[in-house]
Design a protein around this nucleic acid. Structure first.
Lengths: 296, 296
DNA sequence: TAGTAAAATAATATGATATTATGAGATTGA
DNA sequence: TCAATCTCATAATATCATATTATTTTACTA
């Protein structure tokens, strides 16, 4: 029993005529006759009584008709739902990001995106390695990460150039100077994210590369907490511009330049090389690049 | 998209492998590959992500999988329901009968039948012409009637020989005699069914054939009412044995023979010649004949 | 880095599902 | 009542979808 069979049967039921059904389905009348009698053979029940030239449904025929309608409706519904997906009237996008991007950038990006498309967006925050794993698993469709990606199967596209700012409280003695020499850092109390965080990696790597000694006095695993601590002048810190721009503009934190040293990193968009790029996926990538102008 | 397509797709989803699905469905692997990619072409959506050698469902794939399962379940349910019908675990039988049979015989017959098969029995009472019409329409499957059937398209099978009994009250002067001559009827008050009823037709036709004069004093369109009236000795009547046997056995009515005259008729089973005889139909016919031994 | 395994692709074979042609039975209308 | 018309069934054939085998590509595994 195929859908075609059911479609033909249902049409015959509704028109109470094989030839009329044939006409409606743009096929020959014998094809309809054959289909019906074949169904009767397969199912081992008589579907129609042929009384005179009039067709009337038998009891099993009525049962099959009711199921047939339900089945056809379900198929139609499935097709139209898939059509909605294809035309992005519905959909699902699973995005992952490492901490900084995830907290300070993506929520707004996703919010804007959902204003344009009423789709479900699933959103995971993890470190770069975790996001990379999720991409490999196809557990998420796309990620935005800060660190280097190791798998050869993952496509990496530069997205945003990030910079970490050295910030201090407006009450700190550096607040006036706006610029210091590297040596001045040595005896300063530094508040820093935990080991393994992308921010700390960039900080330590840059400091080492420039042979600057430093002392991390406080470790907090939460950027917001670090900002509060710096504001309270408990110490200074190095934090992504994405996380502190508001506070700097508001004067609650002060950005301090270090002579000849900049903490730089790149955020990258990553996805699996074999990933099928749905319309929605492409649209989100476009959206990401469009959104960049809001930041730079 | 065919039923087969969905079956293949669902199997692939569940085994997460095309070759495993092919094995399970006893078909070649390329056939599965082809089916899937053809579905993707038709529906214009990617159903699987081919990441490495692992297959994972896309979002539209997941949607189709959920619909697919529902559709397959519905088809299976339809098939098993039809199987139940075929094996008479369920069914429908539409029976019609003319008045006497309908009231005094069929209820018990149907009751017994439903003890054996849990099927729906629809039951219509009408005069012979009405039942004949319903048969022609295929509005009922089978009828039991008393009168002659005119349509050449209806199969008529003799069922039961019925006889009308002349009955009087136990207080009537005939009650002792048990037998009378035709001439004795002439001046008797007769209570009779309305014109057009099968009973009256047989009565009048038999009386005319035997040149007996008679006088119908009361007309009632209800056999039960006639029986009560006869019991009350308001008059005598001629009633099917099926309707009065209990009362005669109980002594409330007395059967009176008329010399050389018997009111005879036959009940017949009728159905349309083109009617498909389902198992249930055949079973009911058999049941009818089995039941005869309870009456004769 | 070879060996194995899975999926895709190509060429071909098969078979279900159409079509045309025709026939039988039934209703309709002159 | 009898031809005309209509409906469905049957038979022969054609077509096209769906399978198969053979082969290639790619990825995982030891």
């Amino acid at each position: 029993m195929t859908f075609r069979d059911i479609e033909i049967f249902v049409t015959v039921c509704e028109l109470k005529s094989m030839s009329a059904a044939a006409k409606k389905l743009y096929m020959s009348q014998p094809a309809v006759s054959q289909t019906i009698s074949q169904m009767e053979g397969e199912l081992q029940v008589r579907l129609f009584d042929r009384i005179g030239k009039r067709l009337t449904l038998t009891y099993p025929g009525e049962i099959l008709y009711s199921y047939g309608r339900r089945i056809l409706n379900l198929v139609k519904e499935a097709e139209s739902t898939l059509d909605d997906v294809r035309n992005m009237r519905m959909g699902r996008l699973r995005v992952g990001a490492s901490t900084t991007v995830g907290i300070y950038l993506l929520p707004e990006i996703i919010g804007e995106f959902r204003k344009r498309f009423s789709v479900d967006v699933y959103f995971t925050i993890d470190n770069t390695a975790g996001i990379e794993k999720l991409i490999s698993d196809n557990s998420i469709d796309l990620g935005i990460v800060e660190g280097p990606v190791h798998s050869r199967d993952i496509v990496v596209t530069p997205y945003i150039d990030d910079e970490l700012y050295l910030v201090c409280s407006k009450n700190h003695r550096w607040a006036e100077k706006k610029s210091i020499s590297p040596a001045e850092i040595e005896n300063e109390d530094i508040i820093m994210r935990e080991k393994g965080s992308g921010t700390r990696e960039v900080f330590e790597e840059t400091m080492a590369r420039n042979n600057v000694r430093y002392r991390i006095k406080y470790v907090l695993n939460n950027t917001e907490a670090i900002k509060k601590a710096v504001e309270a002048n408990i110490g200074v810190s190095v934090i992504s511009r994405l996380a502190v721009e508001k506070e700097i503009r508001g004067g609650r934190l002060v950005k301090v330049d270090i002579e000849n040293i900049r903490f730089e990193r790149k955020f990258s968009i990553i996805y699996h090389k074999d990933k099928f790029k749905s319309n929605l996926f492409e649209e989100f990538i476009k959206h990401l690049y469009d959104f960049r102008s809001n930041i730079k």
